[in-house]
């Protein structure tokens, strides 16, 4: 093994380590936001200090209402992470349940579920979320619903594929002959074996959901002011980004770092969990 390969291997592990540490830092930032933020993100407004440049007191500057941008960015982590978490819980629940049903029962059930999944795949996620927002109206709760209901097709397909191969496995046949019920086999025997790939999809899906929330909030459809959400902050700063660029730079940077951390973490997880990839990474490649 030469130097480059060794470093590449380390870097692969590093994906997980770097991504994971950043995710941990952002989670801690969200939990301990009241301890970290020097000002209240909403009520500490003072028009006397409107749109001040970053300095010693206001390290990210102040916004139009004189609120501390740093405090708002810290609290914004709560919204973004909750979007990632809640939408992925809904997505994964729908995707895994439908995938289990389709794969385990097959036949008509399978045809119907896969038909629905194919239609879902033929509507771009942003467009689907916009359709739901058009019907429910703007707001953070509606955004959770919109993003939670639209992006489950991948976990459904992966679960189904895993179930189909697990069904032929010996441990499932053994469970059948022991007289286990369908539900017990599905959740007790098959489910633990599909957790790995689903976890990867969930992590990458959380990154995607955070990006989408930011984009839809930027359009004005997400959390409404004065709620400190990163996308919403960027939306309010739209008309000031030539005169007060710090209003746009820091919230955007926060989104970027969070999504990057989750993507790295997801990539790292996949390298560890996907046996096909693992075989590829060991370096059996002919020279």
């Amino acid at each position: 093994m030469n130097m480059h390969q060794r470093i590449l291997r380390l870097l692969r592990q590093k994906n997980l380590v770097i991504g994971g540490s950043f995710v941990a830092i952002i989670v801690l930032m969200a939990i301990f936001a009241p301890l970290i933020a020097p000002f209240d993100p909403v009520s500490d407004a003072d028009l006397m200090r409107s749109e001040m440049r970053p300095d010693g007191t206001f390290i990210f500057g102040t916004d139009t209402h004189g609120r501390d941008v740093f405090s708002r960015v810290v609290y914004g982590a709560r919204i973004s992470l909750s979007v990632g978490l809640i939408t992925q819980i809904i997505n994964t629940f729908i995707g895994v349940s439908l995938g289990l049903l389709a794969g385990y029962w097959g036949g008509k059930t399978d045809d119907m579920i896969m038909g629905l999944t194919n239609i879902m795949l033929s509507i771009p996620v942003v467009v689907f979320a916009l359709a739901i927002m058009a019907s429910l109206g703007p707001g953070l709760i509606n955004l959770y619903i919109a993003l939670g209901l639209t992006n489950w097709s991948y976990s459904c397909r992966i679960t189904r594929a895993q179930v189909l191969s697990a069904k032929k496995a010996d441990y499932v046949k053994a469970a059948h002959s022991l007289g286990y019920g369908h539900i017990r086999i599905m959740f007790g025997q098959i489910m633990p074996n599909i957790l790995g790939p689903v976890l990867v999809i969930t992590t990458l899906g959380a990154a995607e959901a955070i990006l989408l929330e930011a984009a839809l909030s930027f359009l004005g459809l997400g959390a409404q002011p004065p709620t400190p959400s990163w996308g919403g902050m960027l939306s309010s700063a739209r008309n000031q980004f030539f005169t007060a660029p710090w209003l746009s730079i820091f919230p955007g940077l926060a989104i970027f770092v969070t999504v990057l951390a989750l993507n790295l973490f997801g990539d790292g997880l996949r390298d560890i969990l996907d046996p096909r990839n693992k075989a590829k990474n060991v370096g059996s490649k002919p020279k």
């Binding site: 955007g252 970027f256 990539d267």
Partner: peptide, 17 residues
């Protein structure tokens, strides 16, 4: 991986700036 993670509209604002 950075290119995949950057929020598009933010990139747009930066490019515009």
């Amino acid at each position: 991986v950075a290119g995949v993670s950057i929020p598009q509209f933010w990139l747009g604002i930066l490019l515009m700036y």
